[in-house]
Nucleic acid binder design. Structure first.
Lengths: 334, 334
DNA sequence: CTGAAAGCGCTTACAG
DNA sequence: CTGAAAGCGCTTACAG
């Protein structure tokens, strides 16, 4: 049973491969009668075009690369799920498929295979932009269309979609200050991620605009994992006395922080208020339910995917960005 | 700036494209001296081989297709994250990449593009096998290597990796019966999924082995979403009086059920015991914490990926399966 | 409206 | 140890 190719179909129908190709793609009008015979042959032979050959010939893969977090983070981050759903839904409509890359950069492998590719993808979505991000640099250098989910380090030459995280954290801290809090701990993410920077800026601005000051000691950076949030915050509780509120990088870290507070018998919210960001399912389920900043994850994912398709298909050339408004959802923890 | 191909490198070094190819792949010994000159030229020209051309020539893509749930389900299911992490970690080590397909079958589109592919993937992983699964049928028909995550309908000719879900549900119901429960509601998933059937079998076996009987009415099927679990269970509470325990298909549905119970002032666990399956992060965070069956999601994902690579690389030919033991983790809800 | 043929950029038997 | 060339299976200008 030899492989069925476009040539097999062409011979059966008695036309050229070109005609079959055009009939199938619709890029050229083929007479009704011939088209029907071709379709019939395709059916009978159960012919399926080779996507690989098509990709090579047309220099187009209809595939988008999605650069996600390390798998450790994926395991406990619902925010990822929501972004992913937005991306998938849009790309499905636009007929693009998705190549998913987890981040194994911590393996410290310069020749990471994902970085050595050329053109198995038409474009890329970068999920956790770092300061001086190697993925972004790589894509820029190779001229592969990309959209950053989040805000890149160097903003002038990238397309990106992000929530207005700085405004969001400004609002959170403002909200806490209005409630009388003066010593607010920021349990931020790793410094290498631009998202951490944006959060810190919102935090400082709120202090400044309220004519108050804060200590650098109150800002701590932890890997975005529940266990890390817990461990680091247990130490923080010892180190920093009398804080009355905590703002975390995301919901996952908040869960760790809340566990540390509980074990230390610091009641939430009467003794300590806690506010996180992400507004994932977890925040509703947790006891106490967690006040959290909604950053429109699904919307960010879908808008980024839409933008990327526009960039790939050259309907957009000049770098642009979209900033989505955030919304603070008040719950029991504050 | 013309595109840098293998030919560009060959010309610069003064050898044939074949030699460059062999030097880079290591499939043939090339003299030390020539190899070094080639590597230098690659570096200087910043040559990156075209993956697409390589795929076509070698008839191998180093890519695996992962057929996941509808995006709606992905959004609220941590079980997916854990399976995904297991799959990604193993495939990363084995040097395979992953194509992620969400399930849009409910769009009722027979010509779903994902099903029309030939060979952009070396193999596939099927995540939510249905009774008479179209994806599985399709892969079988085209002779594409695949491994089912879960248990397929027709077990004799598929590779698959699953938890012993039937034993797990048998254990859950046994546990509840020993605690004195006699009327246990099973909030199962959609009937089209084989996982639902396996759960129901465990449920019935436990009743039978304890010399007790149950009513078909106590088994209800709902889409695997929190909101659906909530809505359907609100009706169930009206319809079925005096039940004292509930077992759910997964953690997500359990959250919905627990919300319905709370709104109906049926206290958990004193009035109603609840047990779910998945043992995702949610079960620890929820108040009350949910007793849940651990099904080793990460392990299932990683074993399935390992098995698939073995099948792709023909180290395994004869269909086999691996069944992972489950473990009931007792918490406050029962 | 359709065909013959070049081309996409690799890999890999076939030869030496 | 290395080269010339066929081949992977499509698409798409070029011709008519």
């Amino acid at each position: 049973m030899k492989k069925v190719t476009i040539e097999t179909v062409a011979q059966k129908v008695g036309v050229s491969a070109a005609t079959v190709s055009y009939a199938l793609s619709g890029k050229r009008k083929i007479s009704q009668e011939v088209t029907e015979r071709i379709l019939k042959a395709v059916e009978e032979l159960d012919y399926r075009p080779s996507i690989t050959a098509r990709n090579l010939a047309s220099n187009k893969t209809w595939t988008v690369g999605l650069y996600a977090s390390p798998t450790q983070n994926i395991r406990e981050d619902y925010f990822f799920n929501n972004i992913l759903a937005g991306v998938l839904d849009v790309l499905h409509v636009k007929k693009y498929q998705i190549h998913l890359y987890a981040d194994y950069l911590h393996e410290n492998n310069k020749n990471h295979p994902d970085l050595n590719l050329t053109q198995p993808i038409d474009g890329a979505l970068i999920m956790n932009p770092r300061i001086n991000d190697v993925y972004i640099n790589h894509l820029k250098q190779r001229n592969i269309p990309y959209v950053v989910i989040g805000t890149p380090d160097e903003r002038s030459d990238s397309f990106y979609v992000d929530a207005d995280v700085t405004a969001g954290y400004y609002a959170i801290v403002n909200y806490l200050i209005k409630k009388g809090h003066r010593k607010i701990i920021l349990v931020n993410g790793n410094v290498e991620y631009t998202q951490s920077e944006k959060r810190q800026i919102g935090y400082s601005m709120a202090y400044r605009d309220n004519g108050l000051s804060f200590s650098k000691d109150w800002i701590i950076n932890v890997p975005m994992l529940e266990e890390q949030g817990y461990r680091v915050f247990m130490q923080t509780i010892q180190r920093i006395p009398d804080f009355t509120a905590v703002v975390t990088f995301n919901d996952t870290i908040a869960v760790g922080v809340l566990r540390a507070l509980k074990e230390s018998n610091l009641h939430v919210p009467s003794r300590v208020a806690v506010v996180s960001a992400g507004n994932t399912m977890i925040t509703r389920i947790h006891a106490p339910a967690i006040t959290s900043l909604d950053m429109g994850a699904y919307e960010i994912g879908s808008k980024a995917a839409e933008l990327l398709v526009d960039v790939i298909e050259k309907r957009r050339i000049q770098p642009s960005h979209e900033i989505i408004q955030t919304r603070l959802v008040e719950r029991e923890s504050s």
